[in-house]
Nucleic acid binder design. Structure first.
Lengths: 108, 108
DNA sequence: AATATAAGCAACTGATCGGTTGCGCAAAAT
DNA sequence: ATTTTGCGCAACCGATCAGTTGCTTATATT
């Protein structure tokens, strides 16, 4: 059971769920309605997301509302930080040739 | 064959490889020396990383030097961008109670 | 020319994954 | 009080995965 954030966001369905409840916290049934798959399947994904604290369940009567824990996403961001410098430097190297392309990137 | 960047960085070994060649471009054999696994296993990982352009092979005689394509990591960063606002807002909501914690976070 | 080395490719294997169906339980609705 | 609804849990299944061994090819070395 290696449940880290990276493995959690690897699945496209899981990413879609995250995006969905980012806008609005939801019950498993409500989430499942957005996908072509069983509630149980969605529940499994939610369980995985909950295991690594990407999502927090809040019981309300017989319903369980899952909401996004946005903070946890920072872990991925932190890992990415290591490379941010590299891909910035890479741009600096190609200064002359890619200067125009760089400009375009900043324009949109 | 769903070879997206997210699936690529899901594997811990793959992340380690990325980190390794980020510092220094390497041949499969050189990379394999850093892990407790066969060269072929590493080669498979490299193939996956290459398939989604996270890594670029450069033939040099009979050797193939794999180097990191840092730019590609931006795709993950772009996806993360959607949530950056959320996890910043979350902090603003909890203003009073978490102010001290926020301070601690900024101190280290 | 013979040998050693670097690497990709193919076939196989056990483990994990994403999904299903079927069940039991507790909260709402009737 | 009975039924419906929302949910988690468990067992099962086919597909994919991470790793292995064995082979071939091509470039260096001797």
């Amino acid at each position: 059971m290696r449940r880290d954030v990276f493995q959690a966001i690897a699945d496209p369905t899981r990413r879609a769920i995250i995006l969905l409840i980012a806008a609005q916290a939801m019950t498993p049934n409500a989430i499942a309605a957005h996908f072509d798959m069983t509630r149980q399947a969605v529940s499994k994904h939610l369980q995985i997301l909950a295991e690594c604290d990407l999502v927090t369940p809040a019981q309300s009567g017989r319903e369980i509302i899952y909401e996004l824990n946005g903070t946890k996403m920072g872990e991925v961001d932190k890992w990415l930080e290591q490379f941010r410098k590299i891909w910035e430097d890479r741009f600096n190297e190609l200064d002359k040739v890619l200067l125009t392309i760089k400009k375009q990137r900043h324009e949109n």
